[in-house]
Each structure stands twice: as C-alpha cells, then as structure tokens.
Write a protein that binds this DNA or RNA. Structure first.
Length: 345
RNA sequence: GGGAGAAUACCAGAGUGGCCAAAUGGGGCAGACUGUAAAUCUGCUGACGUACGUCUUCGGUGGUUCGAAUCCAUCUUCUCCCA
C-alpha cells in the first residue's frame, strides 16, 4: 500500500472462527481508518504494507468502548469486565488477556489494548482511579501480547490507549506511562464522549506534546470532518469513526459544499448530483432528489448510497490533508475547509 | 325498489354527553447522531401568542342540554346486503 494512502478496513471475520472467538467477536469491530503521513513511520517500523500482508490493514477494538457504552449491564473489576449479552442475557467476561487472544485469532494488523473509557464529565477522583486500572490492564495486555504469537503469518501491532478524561495532569501522566511499551503506535482514547470540542482539542495538544512524533497517533472514535482537521493540525495521524456511515444512514451527508440533511423537503426537486465534486461513483450517478426519495421511502439503498458518499468524502478529505501537509499549505487550507464544513445546506 | 351501516384534522383511524384541539399510526417539518446493542432516536404538526391562554373545528342545517365530535330531526354523499 502506498505510504499515506487512506485505508478502508474490510471485515474479514471467518465463520470458522466464530465459535473459537465466542461472544467477543460480536464486540470486535472493523474500522475505517484515515491515515496521514504519520503512517510513514509505521512503515519504517514494520511497514503498513509489509506488516499486514494485505493492502489494507485491519484494526480491531478490544471491547473497551463497549465497556463504556454497556454501562448498566456491566461490572468492572480488577480482573476485567463482566457483562450480560443484550441478545440472550448470557454472562461474559472480558479481560486484558482474553481480549488479546481474541484479536490474535481475528488476525488484526492493529490490535487495541483493553481500557476503560470513562464519560467526558467524570470527576477527578473517578478519572484518576480509572486511569490506574487502565494502566494496570495495559501492562497485562502487553504481557499477553509478548506471550503469544500471530496465528496467520503476518505481524500484528498492539496500540496502547492514553486515557485521563478531561484532566491535563492525568493525560500527561498517561502519555508518559504508555511509552514504556515502545509500541508501533499510540492511541488517544476517551475523547468525544460528551466533553466540549475545545476540551478535546486541548487534551490532544497536551498528549501529543508528549507522545513520540515518529509513530502514528490514533485518535479513537473521532469524529466530524472539522474534528479531524483540528486533530490533524494538532498532530494526529489516524482516525476511525462511525459517523460517515451512521449519520449517512440517518440522512446526513457531508459534501464539498456543506452538510445536507437529505430528508429535508428542500431537496425534493433538486435534480443536481449528490456532490458534483465528490469522488464516489454515487456522487455523480444519483441526484439529491432521488436520494431523498429513497430515504423518505425507507429504502435501504438510501443508506448505502449515503454511506458510500460519506466514506468517500472522508477519504478524500484525508487525502487532501496529506497533500496540503506535504506542500506546506495545510494551515490555510484547513481554515477554508472548516468554514465550508460547518455550513449547513 | 327494499334494508343496513358510515361520514372525525393532509391520509388512515380511535373517541360515542363535560377530563376533546380530539388517542394511535402514516405523511409533513425540523433536530440529534463521534473507539457502531444504532437502516436509529427526539421534538413539532387547526389559528393567533414565547408562554398561562384565547378563538374556530369532528359531512350540511336545525334542535335537545348548563354543556354535543358524541343525543334527536332532516338533508347530502358514500359503502354493503336483498331484489
């Protein structure tokens, strides 16, 4: 894979693996990654293209975020996280060890550490306690990682996750702590979980002032196109987010002219292409009026078209960011783009 | 020709004397969605007012009643059954 090319991760779950992997496979997700030149260093450290063996790396989450979103049917302890399946009520336990095992089985190129992701408004005491747990779990993740080997013939990386809620001091401590593992890349977690965007940006600054510049920094779960540009400006290299697909399914389109709610009546008779400057084939083939019709009619194809458009839009945005970083015009370009991206059509 | 039933807001459809500006669903209008329990969720949808509220609505007309979408009479339209 060419250095710095955005990668769309494909699910590669094999049916034969499901029984081995058990319930955990439900919680191991595939990701859309948006990479910028920071990935150069990952290439040097092992090579995105070499270290995954395919031209598109697969990244899996550990289940840490589910621990966060499951609050209510979960129980945290030093050992791990016990929770009930929402499907059949059966009990399951995630531990740093078995989560690593699972990701070995899945064969992810980039595996994530098992962490606790506290809410954005967590009080200091809770945040500090939670960070301690996340750090102890991190040690166990790397122990298990060292004890086990890849099962599928390609190298796997394990990324630690910096936590610390909205407290600079905790974030700094975590960014320091995490480096002892000399990982191929570092993730920033626990952001965009309810705190104001400005707080998130500040935390990124604090953390990125400490994390090594030579390795990819992965901002987990973020975010809006503007969030991405702000984070890139602050030194982030990788992202993943449900937004392009989920919001797409719900009728929100990110376009080169601004944000569109395709269900709004104003598009009823707009027979212009979805995004004249878009790079996905759906952008030129379908009109706004048609897409609106599909969305209003509850047609699955609306969700598909919108998702394809949004993913292409995100990918293109990241590709542009790379170009602008390389030719040194990122700052100006970003300023223009932010204004556009905030426009509601 | 004879008999039975029905007419409710954009649509469908509850309500059958006061708690009804009128359930519910659809449609319409808008909003939310950030490491995916999410093709989802929320709000508004007679008029005027931010709001307490006020006014005009339940096929037409006329009655009964303190009070009617609800009861009575009549007209109109529609549906069904029998000839």
């Amino acid at each position: 894979m060419p250095v710095g090319t955005a990668a769309t991760v494909k699910g590669v779950f094999h049916r034969d693996l499901v029984s081995e992997v058990n319930a955990q496979i439900i919680l191991a997700n595939t990701y859309h990654l948006y990479l910028r030149p920071g990935m150069d260093t990952l290439t040097r450290a092992g090579g995105v293209h070499r270290f995954c063996g395919w031209d598109r790396p697969m990244l899996t989450d550990s289940g840490g975020f589910q621990v966060f979103s499951l609050s209510g049917v979960r129980k945290l302890s030093e050992e791990g996280c016990k929770f009930s399946s929402h499907i059949d009520g059966s009990k399951h336990l995630f531990t740093p060890e078995n989560v690593i095992d699972t990701q070995r089985v899945i064969g992810a190129d980039i595996m994530m550490a098992f962490d606790e992701c506290p809410p954005g408004d967590a009080p200091y005491d809770y945040a500090a306690k939670s960070l301690g747990l996340t750090h102890r779990w991190l040690g166990r993740c790397f122990e298990q990682f060292a004890k086990t080997s890849p099962m599928w013939g390609h190298r796997q990386s394990l990324f630690p996750i910096v936590q610390g809620c909205a407290y600079e001091e905790l974030r700094e401590r975590s960014a320091q702590f995490v480096q002892q593992f000399d990982a191929d890349g570092y993730a920033i977690g626990g952001l965009a979980v309810g705190e104001p965007a400005e707080v998130m940006y500040r935390m990124i600054e604090v953390v990125n002032a400490i994390l090594p510049t030579g390795k990819p920094r992965y901002l987990m779960g973020v975010g809006t196109p503007v969030n991405l540009l702000e984070a890139i400006e602050r030194g982030v290299d990788m992202f993943d987010c449900v937004m392009p697909t989920r919001n797409g399914r719900n009728g929100m389109l990110f376009t080169s002219e601004g944000v569109i709610n395709i269900r709004n009546k104003k598009w009823e008779n707009d027979f212009s292409p979805i995004d004249p400057q878009g790079t996905a084939f759906v952008d030129k083939v379908y009109t706004k009026a048609y897409l609106r019709h599909l969305a209003i009619s509850g047609e699955m194809m609306a969700a598909q078209i919108a998702s394809m458009h949004n993913i292409a839009f995100y990918t293109r945005l990241m590709a542009q960011a790379r170009e602008k970083i390389i030719d040194g015009s990122f700052a100006e370009w970003k300023k223009e783009m932010v204004a556009k991206l905030l426009t509601k059509l």
